[in-house]
Nucleic acid binder design. Structure first.
Lengths: 123, 123
DNA sequence: CCGCATCCTGATCGATACTG
DNA sequence: CAGTATCGATCAGGATGCGG
């Protein structure tokens, strides 16, 4: 994980890429939005994030936890109960995410159209 | 490219993922931000987007073009001159991108700290 | 100058099986 | 219930060489 996708020094000119480093894996956004509405159990996330495998869900949650965006709380029950929730830092990311999401709502159709046109012209 | 990363039907519950589908490849953001300041030639981009290979730059530009975010203009000179610029649709994406970038400026250090702490605790 | 084609590597992801 | 471990398949991305 974390793949050397970019260097972590603050002065790099590759500065912009960091914005996405935190967010842009296949499942992060989906998990993130699920947690917007409050804490969720592992099994709930598994059910609600359609198509995610156990491996990917765990991996994604670990990454979010490592980045300080998500809390993991384990209740000492049998069988175990684990709840995930956004941290305060995680909450600060919701606003930018929402804005990006609004852009999608407004313009994704245009993107789709552009693709069609492009694919048509370049048989 | 475009990897079946998600289905393109508008009604899918995986709606949120689309926001990133458009933007989240390794080099898209960097190219995008380069074009914010106006049209650029291929060779300029190649020089300014540090570390990008010809293959990746071309691939990235093609994808942005296909998505209708970038214009490609070829001047019939010898040797060829090619200029890239943002389309109006591309411009609409700048605002969300800028906001995400601001988040990075404000909180990336926190993420880095969280990572350190996490890695320390989970030796 | 701008790009395409090819080969090759390692990362990513899914599927499956197995634990506390 | 909430994971870990392992094995293949697939894919992104780098390096190189050629072409208009």
């Amino acid at each position: 994980m974390n793949s050397g996708f970019l260097s972590e020094d603050k002065e790099s000119p590759c500065h912009y890429r960091r914005a996405l480093e935190v967010v842009s894996s296949k499942w992060t956004v989906l998990v993130f939005y699920e947690l917007e509405s409050g804490k969720k159990r592992y099994s709930d996330l598994k059910r609600q994030v359609e198509g995610v495998t156990q491996k990917m869900l765990t991996q994604t949650l670990r990454q979010l936890e490592r980045d300080g965006l998500v809390n993991r709380h384990v209740y000492p029950t049998v069988p175990p109960t684990v709840e995930y929730s956004l941290t305060p830092l995680g909450e600060t990311l919701m606003e930018p995410m929402r804005i990006l999401h609004q852009w999608t709502d407004s313009y994704y159709d245009s993107v789709l159209q552009a693709r069609k046109a492009f694919d048509r012209d370049n048989t």
